[in-house]
């Protein structure tokens, strides 16, 4: 165990593939986020896909490279995600309904469809999951 690990022969395939896969996976994660609620998808699974897209980059290139790619700390993402979900729960209170009641806008928006507080909640979960997964994995990877 005291021997220095031999220098790994890194394949060129992974970094190149990761560069193309990451945006695709990120778009797919947004698709999953929007598809959620009534169909399979939602914030949690979307967040996991987004986090794995980012972690793929970290594995293929380096954790430090991912850090410099991110304009924010994973920790702030956790806080912002929690805050978004909390606000989505608080909105119904202003309409005189109990905490977390689902409310939707009357008009449909192109592409997104009907949007309402459940989508906002899911968005919060999405951000929270991305944040917490990156927080844990980057801490482990850099240790």
């Amino acid at each position: 165990m005291n021997r220095k690990p031999e220098k790994l022969q890194r394949s060129l395939l992974l970094p190149v593939a990761a560069r193309y896969l990451m945006p695709l996976l990120l778009i797919f994660s947004i698709f999953l986020l929007l598809r959620g609620h009534n169909e399979i998808g939602g914030g949690f699974i979307g967040g996991l896909v987004a986090a794995s897209a980012l972690m793929l980059y970290a594995i293929a290139v380096s954790p430090a490279a991912l850090r410099s790619l991110l304009p924010f700390e994973p920790r702030s993402l956790v806080a912002v995600g929690l805050l978004t979900s909390l606000i989505s729960g608080l909105i119904p209170l202003f309409a005189g309904r109990p905490f977390l009641t689902g409310l939707w806008l009357k008009t449909e928006i192109p592409v997104l469809g009907k949007i309402g507080t459940p989508l906002l909640f899911d968005l919060g979960v999405y951000l929270l999951v991305v944040g917490i997964v990156l927080w844990i994995l980057l801490t482990l990877a850099e240790d």
Binding site: R75, S76, V78, A79, V80, L82, L83, L86, L90, F99
Partner: peptide, 13 residues
């Protein structure tokens, strides 16, 4: 439940 949650988030921020 909400007060500690909100203050937990603020502390994270």
């Amino acid at each position: 439940i909400l007060i500690p949650l909100a203050f937990g988030i603020f502390s994270l921020l």
